[in-house]
Design a protein around this nucleic acid. Structure first.
Lengths: 178, 178
DNA sequence: GGGCGCATGTAAAGCGTTACATGATTGC
DNA sequence: GCAATCATGTAACGCTTTACATGCGCCC
């Protein structure tokens, strides 16, 4: 279910086509909830038929037509309901950590390589988040009411990446120590 | 695919029945990869038929029989292959963060309640991890070769929970500030 | 001419959750 | 008597991924 609701959140910020949403789900909202375009189109069709969103076909010069979706009152009511409900507890699913746990079954050098690659991923994500933060919230002391949520969400991402980097450093240090 | 491999890792530590595995997936290995008993039984049956594991029926006094699974050479070969392959990059999926992002659509008090509940979850998990660490690794300076991986995995969990708590505190502070 | 971006989908297969189902023993 | 623990599954449904499919316009 949460994909529907993540889409409702995104559309309530600004109406969008499936394609636009797919790009948002590669960034911003996508930092916390990933979805492919195939999934998005399917869910959008379902939401349209259940009346949570409504599509308007928009013709564009020198570009394919697009269907721009916006939330309906029913969709906004549904979203409010969902927002009030306590979020389900989240399970971590980390392939990396499963491999780390099995360290004694492989070469340390191999695990070191995995860890360095992971660290680089964290560093890249952190840089992206920090660029986004600097651009969108130059003065975190003075946030508009509708910026507080997105700002705090981004802060969560930043904290996560930093903790990830520190953990990688701990692993690298221990694996290099012999 | 990773569930098969997580099971192979767990079985390579110690043979187990489906039931035992389900309990391990509620703790230890389950901290990084969650699975229900239904899933485990299904996957175990598939792995048996593809020759990665082999079951031995064990009779028990005053308890139902159990099927104890152990890895086969083919299973260990498959696992090694998988361990060497670079782990897929992990997407975060956080219902909580989607809700946080939509903060402007709900009551701040509601979001505060969600955040406090989440904080409590982190505190509980952290306590569990730290108990486990104190018990299993009283002297982290002197770890046996096969303890390094599990120790570092646990450290990752501890770091994650700590970062989660700090983030919740940041959210709570900002939401209370008006 | 080739590749990328825009734009929308279908199909198949696998993964995961929820509900259902059974039955013995142990402890309160 | 009732609940919990041990033990193993099936069935239905929904979610997710991967592959396939199409077609126009722009830029190099």
């Amino acid at each position: 279910m949460p994909l529907e609701h993540a889409i409702l959140v995104s559309l309530s910020e600004r109406p969008a086509s499936g394609y636009d949403l797919a790009r948002r789900f590669d960034a911003s909202i996508g930092y916390f909830w990933h979805a492919s375009h195939q999934q998005i189109y399917k869910v959008l069709a379902r939401m349209d038929s259940s009346g949570w969103v409504r599509a308007t076909r928009v013709a564009q010069p020198s570009r394919p037509d697009k269907k721009v979706y916006a939330t309906t009152p029913a969709g906004r009511a549904e979203l409010t309901q969902w927002l009030i409900a306590p979020p389900a507890s989240e399970h971590v699913r980390s392939e990396f950590t499963v491999k780390l746990r099995a360290l004694h079954l492989i070469d340390r050098a191999q695990m070191l390589a995995h860890t360095r690659a992971r660290r680089q991923g964290h560093v890249g994500a952190l840089a992206e988040y920090e660029r986004g933060r600097a651009k969108a919230y130059p003065d975190p002391g003075a946030l508009a009411a509708d910026q507080v949520g997105p700002y705090l969400a981004l802060q969560g991402g930043i904290r996560l990446e930093r903790a990830g980097i520190e953990w990688c450093d701990e692993i690298i240090e221990m694996l290099e120590a012999r």
